[in-house]
Simulated assay, not measured.
Amino acid sequence: MSKTKKAPIVIELDTLPTKSKRTTPKSKSVLNDAHLSPADAPAIIDTPINGDAMQSVAQIAAARPSRLLRFLGWAVFTLFGLVISIAFWDFTMDLLARNVWLGRIALGLIAAMILACTLIVLRELGAISRLRKIDDLREVSEQILVQGDLVAAKKHSDKIAALLNGRDEIGWALAEYHEHSNDQFDAASQMHFTENTLFQPLDRLAQKEIESAARQVATATAMIPLALADIVIALTANIRMIRRVAQIYGGRTGTFGSWRLMKTVAAHLVATGAVAIGDDMLGSIAGGGVLSKLSRRFGEGVVNGALTARVGIAAMEVCRPMPFVALKRPKVTALMKNALVGFFG
């Protein structure tokens, strides 16, 4: 019995037309679209990451109410104070008519409340006055660097050292300043010596605060999917960061002082155009590619953290009694690198 070899089976397929005048629905046959190539697929539009949370925070902080709204706020606040005062007065008089001792206790409590409110107002005014003093010191520093007056430079440096006196974290820097302050022979050397000696450790402390705030905002944006929640967290973290930076450079801020300082920093950002993404390679690194492809929320968090770092740098420029001359202004990329290293570490 001989074995016969089986011939191969050939199945002929109808050639598909390259062009068809009649269009058919896609659901009828998949083979009708076989002539299409991947290049014919519609492009996927990747919306850029702009850091919406920090953009909203900057707009809220930089917004200045109109005169009409400020007049309305003053009128409402005055009316509310008048109503509260009359209510306290009527309550105390009625209580005195019923029982003298209870009325006296109520009067004592009201007096204690008024004293506490007065002390709070005085503290706020003192904090604002100290911030204005720092602004004046920075303006005088810029003038001395231009004029080159050695006597004025030494007097001004002593004022800055007096502002920072009593700080334990820079006690050794103050001692070194007082030891070698008279060894400088021109105004530029005197100002550079003061900046290098007194502000180098303070700049490091301020950068640590900025890195911590940037890491917190980036984490909150990446982990919390709620839009309003990340705006609230970013606003709170930025106000706390600005307050800490002001305290590092010798400023004392209360509640109203912190908000005023936040508005000053936001105005500085808007004036310098540092709110928008574009420099420090953030657009190509965070907003344009790798991180947004890996996780859009993570890329949004990195951008918001980078914008927080920019706010921190602006706070350093506003709260620093001396401008950046001898020491380099910190970079956003370096701060974000340290912040993300601390996050993953």
Rank of each mutant, 00 (worst) to 15 (best):
residue 12 E to L: 15
residue 13 L to N: 12
residue 13 L to W: 13
residue 14 D to G: 11
residue 16 L to F: 13
residue 21 K to M: 07
residue 23 T to E: 12
residue 27 S to P: 01
residue 28 K to C: 01
residue 28 K to M: 12
residue 30 V to L: 12
residue 34 A to R: 04
residue 34 A to P: 00
residue 35 H to C: 04
residue 35 H to R: 14
residue 37 S to F: 03
residue 39 A to L: 08
residue 40 D to Y: 09
residue 41 A to K: 11
residue 42 P to G: 04
residue 44 I to H: 07
residue 45 I to H: 10
residue 46 D to H: 07
residue 48 P to S: 12
residue 51 G to S: 04
residue 52 D to C: 02
residue 53 A to E: 05
residue 55 Q to C: 04
residue 55 Q to G: 09
residue 57 V to S: 03
residue 62 A to I: 01
residue 65 P to V: 10
residue 70 R to M: 13
residue 74 W to F: 12
residue 74 W to H: 14
residue 78 T to I: 07
residue 83 V to W: 11
residue 87 A to N: 03
residue 95 L to F: 06
residue 97 A to D: 15
residue 97 A to I: 08
residue 98 R to Y: 13
residue 98 R to E: 13
residue 99 N to E: 15
residue 102 L to I: 06
residue 102 L to W: 14
residue 102 L to K: 04
residue 110 I to A: 12
residue 111 A to N: 05
residue 113 M to W: 08
residue 117 C to Y: 02
residue 120 I to C: 02
residue 121 V to P: 04
residue 121 V to N: 11
residue 122 L to H: 11
residue 124 E to M: 02
residue 129 S to K: 06
residue 133 K to I: 03
residue 134 I to H: 05
residue 137 L to T: 01
residue 139 E to T: 07
residue 140 V to F: 05
residue 143 Q to G: 06
residue 144 I to F: 01
residue 147 Q to D: 15
residue 150 L to A: 05
residue 151 V to C: 05
residue 154 K to M: 06
residue 154 K to G: 03
residue 157 S to R: 04
residue 159 K to E: 15
residue 160 I to E: 04
residue 161 A to P: 00
residue 163 L to V: 01
residue 165 N to D: 14
residue 170 I to P: 05
residue 176 E to D: 15
residue 180 H to A: 13
residue 182 N to Q: 10
residue 186 D to W: 00
residue 188 A to W: 03
residue 194 T to H: 01
residue 194 T to F: 00
residue 196 N to M: 09
residue 201 P to S: 03
residue 203 D to L: 14
residue 209 E to F: 02
residue 210 I to T: 11
residue 211 E to R: 06
residue 221 T to L: 01
residue 221 T to I: 01
residue 226 L to T: 07
residue 227 A to V: 08
residue 227 A to E: 15
residue 229 A to P: 03
residue 230 D to V: 15
residue 232 V to F: 14
residue 235 L to H: 13
residue 236 T to S: 10
residue 239 I to K: 04
residue 241 M to Y: 02
residue 247 Q to F: 11
residue 251 G to C: 07
residue 252 R to N: 10
residue 260 R to Y: 12
residue 261 L to E: 13
residue 262 M to G: 11
residue 263 K to T: 07
residue 264 T to Q: 14
residue 264 T to G: 08
residue 266 A to L: 10
residue 267 A to C: 08
residue 267 A to P: 06
residue 271 A to P: 02
residue 271 A to Y: 09
residue 276 A to D: 11
residue 279 D to I: 06
residue 284 S to C: 11
residue 285 I to Q: 06
residue 286 A to N: 13
residue 293 K to E: 09
residue 296 R to P: 05
residue 301 G to F: 05
residue 302 V to Y: 04
residue 303 V to E: 00
residue 306 A to P: 02
residue 309 A to T: 04
residue 312 G to T: 10
residue 315 A to P: 03
residue 316 M to R: 03
residue 319 C to Y: 02
residue 329 R to N: 07
residue 329 R to M: 11
residue 334 A to H: 08
residue 334 A to W: 07
residue 335 L to P: 01
residue 336 M to W: 03
residue 340 L to G: 07
residue 343 F to Y: 15
residue 344 F to L: 15
